[in-house]
Amino acid sequence: MNVLTLQQELRDFAASIGVDKIGFTTAAPFVDLKHLLKQQQELNYQSGFEEENIELRTEPTLLLEEAASIIAIAVAYPSRMENAPTGKKGARRGIFCRASWGTDYHTVLREKLKEIEGFLVERVPGIKFRSMVDTGELVDRAVAERAGIGWSGKNCSIITPEFGSYVYLGEMITNIPFAPDEAIEDQCGECTLCIDVCPTGAIVQGGQLDSNRCVAFQTQTKGFLPDEFREKIGNRIYGCDTCQTVCPKNKGKKNWLHAAFEPEPELAKPLLAPLLSMTNKEFKSQFGHMSGSWRGKKPIQRNAIIALAHFKEEDAMPQLIDLLTKDERPMIRGTAAWAIGKIAAAEAEEVLLAALQLEQDPDVLNEIDKGLTLLKN
């Protein structure tokens, strides 16, 4: 079959299965990206979730020896929620970022890539391919940018003219020599809103992110949250959307296109208090289908405690005291101690002083001291 004919048929097929954008690029090395990634490593700006081997991230032929081109796909996700519940005193709520609403995008995009694989296998004898979504070696944004899906914005997201930056990305390396698409010209211009409003200054400059300072990254860590970020995460329990919500290119982009990504309001903005006593089984049952559950319940519970402290929610004191005195996990006990000091309810000092006498873990003792210090300020 003629490759150009196949390429057009593939575009049509992708649209029929709910792929919102598809683009093609060569399997040539990502030379500029290689330099950027080396700089990121030298500056310690990487999160640790990425593939460490820069060669694997920038040399497609190391992943598929016969690689001739890369297919990039994008699927849009909602930027707004209908019937969003409102938190109030005694019933405070946290929020998952938009990229975690609905069904885990890894699952959805992998299914779409499998359908594309099947489409090509039927038409191309001896086809070879390797598909990936987010957790693969290649840098999704770099592939999408070169394949004409969108441009790489100053907020370090791919921004598409049609859907803004609210898109999930995936790609397939293949030995089929598809014709490459043209990249889209950068349209950020002089705008620096995403840099200006980043809660922690994680966007060092346009297109460069210190991942370790990113609120989205910090909400996914498993240890104690550093003090400087506790005041910044607010009621975010997973992820952060600030650099996307302020982007002018996202204005008016609702993207209510795929039922799989429509948020369940009570899960996307869950009540905080029930999260604190949730078992692993209950957590998996309620949140296991969401991408925001991938790190387990512990970081979510820690963030929920911090969110309750953010609201100074005195109604949460009995639960926080229970966590401080009974929970087996030092990080949860310690965060609860800090939150008790932050909320500063009438019984806070007595509770913390009593815990100080019984606690043996040095990290938790340190958090109790922080809580007592907060009471004095």
Rank of each mutant, 00 (worst) to 15 (best):
A202V: 07
T192E: 10
A74T: 15
T192K: 13
T373H: 11
Q8T: 07
E117A: 12
T25F: 03
A339E: 02
L356D: 00
Q205I: 01
M81F: 11
V121Y: 13
D363A: 11
L6T: 03
P263G: 11
Q40W: 13
E231K: 15
L37R: 09
L225P: 00
L358M: 03
Y45Q: 12
L169V: 06
M132G: 13
H35K: 15
D196E: 14
Q286Y: 09
G207A: 06
I71P: 05
A202K: 01
I70H: 07
L375E: 04
F49V: 05
T103I: 13
N155I: 09
C97N: 14
V3I: 10
R333I: 08
M172P: 08
F311D: 07
Q39E: 15
T174G: 00
D315F: 13
G136W: 02
A344C: 11
K254I: 07
R146I: 01
A67L: 06
A304M: 12
L275E: 12
V197E: 14
P85C: 14
A147Y: 04
C247V: 03
R110M: 13
T61I: 10
P265N: 09
L138R: 10
I306G: 05
I343R: 00
L33G: 15
L169D: 02
T279S: 15
Q187N: 10
T135C: 06
D196R: 14
K251S: 02
P263W: 02
Y238I: 04
Y168G: 13
Q187T: 13
A183F: 01
